[in-house]
Structure formats: C-alpha cells, structure tokens
Write a protein that binds this DNA or RNA. Structure first.
Lengths: 236, 236
DNA sequence: CGACTTGCGTCCGAAATCGGACAATCCATC
DNA sequence: GATGGATTGTCCGATTTCGGACGCAAGTCG
C-alpha cells in the first residue's frame, strides 16, 4: 500500500488511505507551514481548507467573552476542519496553531469533489471525527472531575504525544488557557509536578522527565481517548 | 416533501430527509419505547442499532471509576449511535435514557446498507454530529468556566428544550451527575434559582418559571450550540 | 551593557466547592 | 394511617481555586 507515500507523508490519516484514494487527493494537496498562532478556522467564517497536519499542534477553542478555553487538540494524527467532513461550512469554535509545524491542505471544494468521486475517502476521516469526539468528552469530564494538577498532567501528555521530543514549548500563560484556569494556578501545579520529579520547568518550556508519573496523576482522564484512537485507526 | 411523514415522525432528522431517502429507511425502522435508565449504548459493546428519538432524552456518559459525568444530551432533534454514523462500531462512552420516551430504531446493518444505496442519507446525520460536537465543546467549556448555578441553569434549559412542558422530571441526585458535582451542591443551587424566581422546586421535579432568567444565568455556555443546530439543521 | 519585554514566582483574603454525615420530608404501599 | 425507601435540606471543617497584585528573572535588542 503506497510505500513511497508514507515516506513522504507523515499525517496518519493520509497514510491510512488506499493508494487509489490518496492518488486522487494528492494533486490537490498543498504543503503549508503553520507558524504559531495561525488561525486555521475563524469563528463564523467559511472554512476554506481542510488541513492534514504533518507536524505541530492545533487546538480548538471555545470562544468566551474573554479568555479562551481549549477543548480539543490535534496533531499529525488528525486534521483541522472537521465540520467540512461532516458537511458543515463553518463553526462557532476557533482553531489556532499552538505548536508550529507543517500541514498538507486541500481546499474544501477539492475535498468534496474527491469524496464525491471516491466515497471511501470519507471512511478514515469519519473514524478520526469519532476519536476527536471521545477526546472532547474526556476533556469535559476532566474539566469537572480533576484538579489542576491532574489536568495539567493530562495536557502535557497529550502535547507530548503530538511532539517529537520531551521538550515542550509551553508557557504557563498558554497552559492556563488550555486548562481553563488562572496563570498562577499553573505555576504552582508545575511546581508540584516538578517536586515529584515528573517534569522539569524551564522558561517557556517544560521537559518531561517521568511519563509514568504523569500517567498516574492524570488518572482515567487520559488514555481513554488515546486507546480509542489506536483501536480505531490503524496506520500500516 | 412527504407531508404525511412529518405528521407521524417527530424526529427532526428523519423529517429532514427527502421523501426518497426516508422511504428507503422506513421499512427498517422499528418503533421502540425507551423507559428510564435504558442503556442504549454500552461501553465497549458493539452498537447494534441507531435510534432516532421521538421523545424523551438520552445522555452520553463519560464512565468514571465511580460516579458518572454527563457529556452530551440528545432528544428528538437527534439520534443515539453517532459512532455508527462515523463508521465506528463501539465507543468508550455509555448512552442512557434519562427521560422516558420513544424512538425509531434501525439496525446498524440496515442503516449502513441504506447509506450505501443512497449516500445522501448521510448528509443530515453528519450535520447532527457536528452540532453534537459543538454541544460537547460547550459542555467542556461550561464545566471549567462556570459555577454550579450557571451550569444548572444550562442543563435545565437543555432539558426543557427536549421536553414538552415546563415540568422537568429531575432528581437532585441525577442533576449532580449531570453537572459533575455533589448532590448537596445541587440542592443549594436550586434554592438559589428558586429564590430569584426562575424555577420552582418540587420533589423529583423542577418547574421552569422564568426562562429568561435562566438564559441570563447560563451566560454564553448556553445558546451557542443551540443556535448552531438551528443554523445547520432546518426541518421544514 | 542596559533597558525592555516576556514569562515566572509569590502572596493575600475571599469565595466556591468538597466530603461526609445526619435530619427532615415526601409519597407509595400496605 | 403507619411504615419504609427515596428525595431533599442542612451543617461543618477542610481544601481548592479564585482574583488581583506585585516583584523578580531571563532572555532580547538596540
């Protein structure tokens, strides 16, 4: 199944496509760089592209009157532009690049045409939508059932999953938005994690030291969505 | 567009289908009653049916080690069995009937065959999945950004939207699970709402007195998902 | 190198929520 | 109309988180 392709494409959804399906999309895919803070989907604006991330992280944000709350995280295991997959043209939730990277993007028009021509393309995309729903559900759960330390551990794990090394570029300010809490709350939570040796705190960066510890801290808020992804989406 | 049909079918997704699409599903639809506490989707069990609710309420639950947290609410505006729509056979989140009612259900096999035969059937179902994702996102947001009173107001509104009258059958115990909080917390929150005249508290029941007040209390956690539904799904 | 910006550490009182227990009440049923 | 289970009301101390402010440190850039 398209060996050459997986050596170029790192996105797990694209590399899951059959050779024929991928061949149909390929001419329409445009490689784009995704600098930090790029707004990939703006509230109430038509979504022009679907982007398959190759690296980096994008997060979905529930827009609040002031202050943002992150409700979803996507890396190279997924795509940005889920509403398009579901036949919707826009959404009230914004998507922003939270870790610089690259993506392969396709215009909404081209993607829809491709799906029309070969409906099997939709298959892996639907699977991904499911895993994202599970992730959001777990986030809703974590937000109400876990304290800041546990939620912090969860987000660090989720971020690391979508990053190469163990050095994560994350300011406390940003983490506070992810966790829906105040910035000083993050500072003390990172200290707690650092105190037990699970992470190391640097300026604008967090180094994962002991992943096992983080897993334990995050409890059953983590791993459910991640297992579901592996169960459902098999990249060969 | 199938006038006779909408006089029988109250589910908003079914009544959105074209006459031809509906005609294909109709023979496979089985009317079932849904008593309280019916488990419609069990964790890690193959989903055998997709159910279009005609009345009543089903909620999606993030299974925790102990104590449940509700992460989604569906009534006659939607369906239970979203994973099937997305091509997945099971899910880690349970679905339970929280308000007795009826549904029209179709077996997974028949639904898939119908979609195969007429892919346009998938269209409104995808739209609904989108609105459900928005709802879950708003729940994640509300869970971390609003206090118990506001979240209670939101759930009361969401429940009323899916119920005929203004008398909601809801115990505090149940509300506590919905809100992810302790039961006494609900008691005092209901008192607060009752004190301002927005609801009336009876045994095992809540009567909505002043919906405007509830809207104000719930802030921007409510209405976003609801508006998105109306924008995206138009039942004629 | 020095000023400046950005990010981090810390402190405080106030408020919300927790955890757990126990009392009071309603209502169905006998 | 008494009994028992389910539902609701209440209380208390402990803990978490909030909200806001202020000072410090680390890079950056002229």
């Amino acid at each position: 199944m398209a060996l050459f392709q997986s050596s170029i494409v790192r996105n797990r959804l694209l590399s899951m496509l059959s050779q024929e399906d991928y061949a149909l999309l390929e001419p329409s895919l445009e490689r784009v760089s995704l600098p930090l803070q790029t707004v990939m989907i703006e509230t109430q604006q038509p979504i022009q592209h679907v982007t398959f991330l190759e690296s980096g992280i994008s997060s979905t944000i529930a827009n609040t009157d002031e202050g943002r709350i992150e409700i979803g995280l996507v890396g190279r295991e997924g795509l940005v532009g889920v509403p398009i997959i579901l036949g919707v043209d826009q959404t009230p939730h914004r998507c922003v690049v939270q870790g610089a990277g690259e993506g392969l993007r396709i215009s909404t028009v081209d993607l829809r045409a491709a799906i029309q021509a070969r409906p099997t393309i939709l298959q892996p995309l639907g699977l991904f939508v499911h895993t994202l729903m599970v992730q959001m559900g777990q986030t809703a759960y974590a937000n109400v059932a876990f304290d800041i330390e546990a939620r912090l551990a969860r987000w660090i794990l989720m971020t690391q999953d979508r990053t190469n090394g163990s050095d994560l570029v994350l300011t406390h300010e940003f983490l506070a938005a992810m966790l829906g809490t105040r910035r000083p709350g993050v500072t003390s939570a990172t200290h707690a994690l650092e105190g037990m040796g699970s992470i190391r705190n640097k300026r604008g960066r967090i180094e994962v030291r002991n992943r096992e510890m983080l897993l334990e801290l995050a409890g059953d808020a983590y791993q459910v969505a991640e297992d579901e992804y592996e169960r459902v989406i098999t990249t060969n």
